[in-house]
Design a protein around this nucleic acid. Sequence first.
DNA 1: CCAAACTTGATGTACGTAAATCAAAAAATC
DNA 2: GATTTTTTGATTTACGTACATCAAGTTTGG
Lengths: 340, 340
Amino acid sequence: MRPTVHDIAAAAGVSLATVDRVLNQRPGVRHVTREKVETAIRDLGYIRDVAAANLAKGRTYPLVFILPASDNSFMHGLNAEIRQAVLRSPAERTDIRIIEVPAFDPAALVSVLEGLSREKPCGIAMVATDAPEVRAVVDRLVRERFPIVTLVSDLTGSLRHHYAGVDNIAAGRTAARLLGRFLGPRKGEIAVLAGSMLVRDHRERLEGFAAVMAEEFPDLAILPVLEGRDDPEVAHRLVADALGNAGIVGIYSLGAGNRGLIRALKEKAADRTLTVVAHELTAHTRAALIDNTIDAILNQDAGHEVRSAIRILKAKADGLAVIAAQERIRLDIFLKDNLP
Amino acid sequence: MRPTVHDIAAAAGVSLATVDRVLNQRPGVRHVTREKVETAIRDLGYIRDVAAANLAKGRTYPLVFILPASDNSFMHGLNAEIRQAVLRSPAERTDIRIIEVPAFDPAALVSVLEGLSREKPCGIAMVATDAPEVRAVVDRLVRERFPIVTLVSDLTGSLRHHYAGVDNIAAGRTAARLLGRFLGPRKGEIAVLAGSMLVRDHRERLEGFAAVMAEEFPDLAILPVLEGRDDPEVAHRLVADALGNAGIVGIYSLGAGNRGLIRALKEKAADRTLTVVAHELTAHTRAALIDNTIDAILNQDAGHEVRSAIRILKAKADGLAVIAAQERIRLDIFLKDNLP
DNA sequence: CCAAACTTGATGTACGTAAATCAAAAAATC
DNA sequence: GATTTTTTGATTTACGTACATCAAGTTTGG
């Protein structure tokens, strides 16, 4: 059997109360006594039974998820996954609240975060908007000992404890290689459809994409980025216009709004053999992959991101370790053959 | 607060002891009383606190992993992941034992399984050897209420509760599409290196591969399968020989023993532009992907498989639900840009 | 050396469930 | 209606930890 508090008390020659004081870092223990207890803990390999401790404490984990109020499939999916997690709350002792903030609005995000510092949740997961003032509040909250993880979009250079999302530079690079390899010896131009170059993940995807294109596929030229604002209508118009250019052989869609892209492709390019790589698996992109309108989809598993964020926040709140490999968010590549 | 046993006792107008009898399916409760209690449970939305229950029971989960004693990187990796899980045992209340059986030996597997039926573990995870007699014992054990999951290699048509592994037909199909698309307009022959056609997962990969090749890439012909017995030396010899054929433009390696494949490629095909798709990410295949000897790697995450198997066995033992999406084992596709 | 401050022990209750025991009540059997 | 059997209640202990209280012990400082 694994050792209990009683065993350490006996081993250290102190009372249960003293062991408790050491374990929970309560005052009133002399330095030498504390060391005796800590030695016993190490020697016996004592590990606190978190389940029993939580039971005794009646602990719950109040968590807050901060999401941009964006009306696209991916954010809807992310929201749905968090609501799934809410359903599991009783079993997981979590108490999850979702706060929506206007998208691309650092000030709004900052004020929400400042409100939270009063409310004392035991963890915050946020889709970060990349701005200095956001970084500043996040750093302050981390210093005040709030566990914070960024979700989907990171806040590089901040003190956030963890990023639950994909490596977007790698995603862009992968898209470039897929597109380049699929096109083989063909030469021509590549159209890139993004949401907005103000969003860090989109910038990073483009950066990775452009890098590999330049290094390895010099016969393919990237056209100026089309900013579709993650809006299907805008995307449709931009892509339909762009397809007037007969030199386009491939498209990389690195943001949302793929519904518009797909419609434009079906209207204007049914007769052309375009190679298309898009991000985010939704009902629309899935159908387009199956009917060969899209050739490959890169995806991040929103469910995994949410579950991972929760696990990490709980672990941080308890000062426990996590299984690193389990928390790595993969870049999923879907061809029509390996769809889930 | 969520309701406790006390609340249902009060609501049903019975004593705590009776609630306990109902919850734990102990005898000595009249039918009508049992129904009263069950109604109260539903009405109040009572959920048993598994942590408290496990604490009270002093429950541990004795689990058994049965693996083939194969000396290849993948099985070593799988073994290592299980040992990692053993290290987490205290926190997870598991008690994991690994049993190795001779590979490809249904009789050995059967006798181990029969031995287990006496020992009463609360769950069994096994890399299945696909044979009728194995299916028979598995079905018998499942009927005797042992939770069983197959790992890596499935036992189709048996009553096993779950399969923690990838869809190998989809894997083969994906490999074919990658190879076909990467080769583009090139015509020629494709060499396939397998471990053994006696193993179900290898047969399935080939089946999926051949299907897509036939449907979509008629200019590429599949050569007779090279059976490398998952052994680097054998694989090396077979591939080196095969490369005498100048018509080969691509290789699909669907088993283990890739070290031999890679060496053969470097010796005999450094000057040729072969397209190569291989399975399983190891130190060797990773290096080969980076230096362009291999173009894509398909992988199954052994760590995920092990953790998933454990979660599922525990859930089955407690009669609880699992998060289906979390337990789906992805087919990972790695290009040199999205390596972990 | 005495008082104040600090340190430690002893003890009890709680968390939500499991499981056992024994007594009492109800139902079924004759 | 008495007897046996079944059902139910009441109560207790336990799991491993948290946390509070109070008494007793040990150090300090003056």
